[in-house]
């Protein structure tokens, strides 16, 4: 235990809570969804229920949210699919971002961590020492629509996010 504390002590110099603190935040916006990317080195505490965790080490987290402004689609599923197929990459935006905890539940989560991670999210409770990567989608059962997500680790690539429901 002492050894672990000694080994991780330098990491405590940089701390972040959600998207505040020593964390690199990128925000991408598309018509029907948006993407928040967090990169941190050091201690990173995430309080969002979908990814509640404490990581000591390096981490990259990407969250895919539906846009609250996207109106339900008036048309068939085939037409919506055609729209999704044509969706282009989301554009990086530098507008102020609401706090992560206010953004609701993400439809998709992608994480890569290296170090020590304690997790207590809705899906998983556990501890990881080493390297772990995860890509997950969680679509509510009352969602009638199409989700199209493209995620890559390449820095230059913008993600594709299309999350839209049909009108009931």
């Amino acid at each position: 235990m002492r050894l672990a504390l000694l080994m991780t002590f330098p990491l405590w110099g940089s701390c972040a809570v959600n998207d505040r603190g020593v964390v690199h935040v990128r925000h991408f916006a598309a018509e029907s969804g948006h993407v928040v990317e967090l990169r941190a080195v050091g201690a990173h505490l995430v309080t969002h229920g979908a990814d509640r965790s404490l990581t000591l080490g390096s981490s990259k987290r990407t969250y895919y949210f539906a846009s609250p402004d996207a109106a339900p689609f008036d048309g068939s599923g085939d037409e919506l699919l055609a729209l999704a197929t044509a969706a282009g990459p989301a554009e990086e935006t530098f507008q102020d971002l609401p706090a992560l905890s206010e953004l609701g539940d993400p439809i998709g989560v992608a994480t890569s961590i290296a170090g020590l991670s304690l997790e207590s999210s809705r899906r998983r409770t556990g501890v990881t020492i080493g390297v772990r990567s995860l890509v997950g989608l969680a679509i509510p059962t009352d969602f009638d629509g199409i989700v199209w997500i493209q995620h890559g680790d390449a820095d230059a690539a913008s993600p594709i996010v299309f999350i839209r429901e049909v009108r009931q």
Partner: peptide
């Protein structure tokens, strides 16, 4: 270990049946 690229299309509900 850390380079994962994914692309997913998921249709649910009525659109899934039509698709």
């Amino acid at each position: 270990l850390s380079d994962i690229q994914i692309e997913h299309m998921v249709a649910t509900g009525a659109p899934a049946i039509e698709v």
